[in-house]
Write a protein that binds this DNA or RNA. Structure first.
Length: 656
DNA sequence: GAGCACTGC
């Protein structure tokens, strides 16, 4: 009756069927776990030889031909075929970066943008930030004069269009991992379709998995003559990958999967020649446990005379990005790299990773292959505001690849109206709406910052806004939970998370931003440094918008009221049922366990920054408020008659 | 009152 545990991934070059050593042993529970092995047989070759080994190399001229002759090329290729690193270089070599033009490559994730840029700079013998650069939020590593190949997050591309709607500097844009259908990839796709109509010279490469390729091609095809020879978009498939992948499923469950992950990893380390290892775990804490166990065992092994060194690296989102980037660094032949990652194959139904690891092969195969586009399930307020800022007045007629539900459009418009960013005719307001859109933040944060001068607490609000952009300020080592909690309590205040984070930052500054002090207080030093960088950048925007520099001098009231002026729409009331309910739509919510208000007497009224959905709907970053503030600071949103005006507005929206 | 998903601007 025991359900098989899986999946186990096993990569081995040149092998068609099951791999040799590990797979043969996969039926033995003690030696089975979710472990991926990557062999790199080309590590000893020169960079140029390595480039020529990539599957995409054979198609170099064909790709260049298609880019020359079609406005849009949809390219299908698996991870590892080399498309992300090679195609931009082929384009540069073929002249697409002549006369100051730029080839841009977007990635859905920051880490990917930085690491792929690093790899390409390496291959070209360039210093990162010159010929090859990257641009992500709060971190622009490009040279406006010198950069020819630019990697950026898709969100950053959308933001760039606010300054240059036709993206005049770019000759080619490649949207990598487009099949992931992230919110900003989808927006970029819609925007680029519009740009292409005005700029026939702009070339687009959409890199996608097989499933969506035809959808992308048809979306971009401007040929309405019915004659296929006049198509403006085309699909090309890159066959193969550098390292074939085999997936194995365990036959029986593993009693202690942490232990067996460590055992399997060590076995591979001792038995196999070259190759790095990826071990998948279900959470940050497990990653850290496995990392420390592996380090310990590798040390013991080194003492017995094992020549090959094991470099053990943790990899999870809470890690500062320089630490995350270490898993992409190349290591010498004498070293084997083990990256311990959090499993991220979570389906949209939000089954937890732990559950996932205990599914049978049959059940695993039943899970949906492609996820619901983010556009279908997101808060669209930031999107709509940005589209408006890009001059797209009728957002309902925007060419969405998958149009979002009308209801979420209406909600977003209502919120933006309530924030004062849009007027009654759904037009961007001047100057507030334009300013809100300028901030690289959720509109509620932007509104809060812009109001902070009026509340006489811009200093405090700047800190709070910056701190809220950083995750995991409180460090909780699994073996020192009690000590960490004791230190963290020193900063906690009954008002909630916002003022607690203000306290943390102010104490950090008071102690001269000392890393030693952070360590003693179980605080994320790098995170706090990042918060101060973010704070400086946000401060520049406030200076530009002439928001007066003021402090409430320790008085919490103005600060709390200012938070409400931005986050009034995210208000919830505690009910006798023992849960919170949103004021807006009576939706049940709970305080997230990471909040300082968790396990405290629940305040009657709260506002929160965001909701995350796991087992339940949790509010993250929560602060207690007075209900009277909601009425006072957002009368248009909460007073009687609101529903009527919303209905009227809805009717107006539906008219478009 | 009950115990923690990730990414992006």
């Amino acid at each position: 009756m025991a359900a098989p545990v899986g999946p186990v991934k096993f990569w081995k070059p040149g092998s068609e069927g099951p791999g040799v050593s590990v797979s043969e042993e996969r039926q033995s529970p003690a030696e089975s776990s979710a472990v991926t092995v990557i062999y790199n047989p080309y590590a000893s070759l020169s960079i140029e030889q390595q480039r020529q080994k990539l599957p995409v190399f054979k198609l170099r001229n064909h790709i260049l031909y298609l880019v020359e002759n079609y406005q849009t090329l949809v390219i299908i290729g698996e991870t590892g075929c080399g498309k992300s690193t090679q195609i931009p270089q082929y384009l540069a070599e073929a002249g697409w970066t002549a006369e100051g033009r730029v080839v841009g490559v977007t990635q859905p994730r920051r880490v990917a943008a930085v690491s792929v840029a690093g790899r390409v700079a390496d291959e070209r013998g360039a210093v990162l930030g010159h010929e090859v650069g990257y641009c992500i939020r709060f971190d622009d590593c490009t040279d406006p004069q010198a950069t020819r190949i630019k990697f950026l997050t898709d969100g950053m591309l959308v933001r760039e269009m606010m300054a240059d709607p036709l993206l005049t500097r770019y000759s080619v844009l490649m949207l990598d991992e487009a099949h992931e259908r992230t919110l900003y990839t989808d927006i970029a796709i819609g925007l680029l379709k519009k740009v292409q109509k005005k700029r026939g010279d702009l070339r687009l490469i959409v890199a996608s998995a097989t499933l969506d390729a035809e959808k992308f091609r048809d979306f971009f095809n401007q040929n309405d003559t019915g004659d296929p020879s006049k198509d403006t978009s085309v699909i090309l498939t890159v066959e193969g990958r550098t390292f074939p992948v085999d997936i194995f499923y365990l036959q029986s469950p593993v009693p202690d999967y942490i232990k067996s992950t460590v055992e399997t990893t060590m076995k591979i380390h001792q038995m196999e020649n070259d190759g790095d290892i990826l071990a998948f775990l279900t959470g940050q804490e497990e990653v850290e446990t496995v990392v420390s166990m592996l380090i310990e065992q590798a040390r013991a092994l080194a003492r017995t005379g094992m020549k090959k060194h094991l470099r053990v690296l943790p990899m999870y989102a809470g890690l500062p990005s320089p630490e995350q980037l270490k898993v992409f660094e190349r290591v010498p032949h004498t070293v084997r790299k083990v990256s311990c990652c959090v499993s991220q194959f979570l389906p949209p139904s939000r089954v937890s990773a732990a559950q996932m690891l205990h599914l049978s092969e049959e059940d695993f195969e039943k899970l949906p292959k492609s996820t619901v586009p983010e556009m279908q399930r997101s808060n669209l307020a930031p999107v709509i505001l940005q589209l408006k800022a890009l001059g797209i007045d009728n957002v309902l007629r925007f060419p969405f690849l998958s149009p979002p539900p009308a209801q979420s459009m209406v909600q977003a418009l209502e919120l933006l109206y309530a924030l004062g960013g849009l007027d009654m005719h759904c037009r961007l307001t001047e100057p507030l709406g334009i300013r809100i859109a300028e901030f690289p933040l959720n509109p509620m944060f932007a509104k809060m910052l812009l109001e902070s001068g009026n509340f006489g607490c811009s200093q405090e609000i700047l800190t709070i806004a910056a701190m809220m952009q950083i995750q995991n300020i409180f460090v909780i080592p699994p073996n020192q939970k009690i000590q960490a909690a004791r230190q963290h309590r020193k900063f906690a205040v009954e008002e909630g998370d916002h003022l607690t984070m203000l306290n943390v930052y102010e104490a950090f500054v008071k102690h001269s931003k000392s890393s030693q002090w952070c360590q003693e207080h179980f605080l994320n030093y790098k995170g706090l440094v990042r918060a101060s960088v973010v704070r400086e950048q946000l401060k520049k925007l406030l200076v530009r918008f002439k928001v007066p520099k003021k402090s409430s001098e320790g008085d919490p009231d103005p600060v709390l009221r200012c938070i409400v002026s931005g986050f009034f729409a995210n208000a919830a009331k505690f009910h006798s049922t023992g849960a919170y309910r949103t004021i807006r739509d009576d939706h049940e919510l709970h305080i997230h366990p990471s909040s300082v208000l968790y396990a405290e007497k629940p305040p009657r009224w709260v506002v929160y920054n965001e909701v995350i959905q796991t087992a339940k709907y949790y509010m993250r970053d929560v602060t207690a408020v007075e209900s009277s503030w909601l009425l006072e600071l957002a009368p248009h949103f909460y007073q009687q008659g609101t529903h009527l005006s919303l209905k009227a507005k809805r009717a107006k929206v539906d008219d478009h």
